[in-house]
Amino acid sequence: MKTKKMNWNYLLIAPALLISVSIILIPGIMTILYSFTDWNGLSPKINFIGVRNFIELFQDKIFFRAILNNVIWVVMFLTIPVCVGMLAAMLLLGRKKTRSIYQVGFLIPYILAPAVNAMLWLNIMFSPISGVVAALRNLGLDLSSPLASMKTAIYACAGVDIWHYWPYLTVIYLAALRQTPADQVEAARVEGCNAWQLFRYVYLPNIMSTVSLMFIMITIGSFLAFDYIKLLTGGGPAHATEVLGTYAYSFAFSSMKVGKAAAVGLFISFFGLIASGIYTRISRKESME
């Protein structure tokens, strides 16, 4: 009887397992293998070149620039949208009647396609013909688009992505905050807690698992950053906004060096894996406590 039940379990899990193996495990293993080759993405002739791709990457200053930009991206996303999202969620928590309307309004940038958001910013904000930049110039201010400067371009790209991303965090945090037991909140208020104390000692401990999960998801997502940079600057000017994702794309589809692109892709996975490991460790610690 027990054996029969086990067989059913295997059968039921088979489709999901098959899909996972087909579209994740096999391509994953192939990416690892390709990273040790000089494959151009087309040729049936694939030469094994050992660790040459990795050596070349370690000698490539643009590769390290890309990693640095990914780190900047992580730091910005772990601070700005988290703080703004949390603040907005806390403010909405007290607005029981109107918070759904605010949520719908806030979510507009999040539900717009990245291509649309990027075009909006390029044409309405950064354009020297029709954008805010043009309007300010007409007022006599001597300024140029932040995308044009090597020092500011990465922050401008991240700013656009953050503008689209923070409402998502607001909705997540608000959903978590609403799960806080009402009796704890009431008790804290009776004890005379101010707003900060209420957040720090009641709400935050209750939503900590959500906050830590989002930290990990943000970190992983930041190393996968691609769309907004590709759309806004293509990695330029002069690689100022290059991240691992755009650099891998450039190797694969412009230089026809799929082997090297796979090597860059492994680094993206490596950083994501570290973040996943940290999350697993935190989760295990929490469950043990």
Binding site: K97, T98, S100, I101, V104, G105, L107, I108, I111, L112, A113, V116, M119, L120, N123
Partner: peptide
């Protein structure tokens, strides 16, 4: 009243989406 406002916002969101689709990029 809240439902009406929410509906209007949802409609405006759809409008924004369609407006975005109409942007000409040359």
């Amino acid at each position: 009243k809240k439902k009406v406002i929410a509906t209007l916002l949802a409609v405006s969101m759809m409008g924004s989406l369609l407006a975005g689709c109409g942007i000409s990029t040359g």
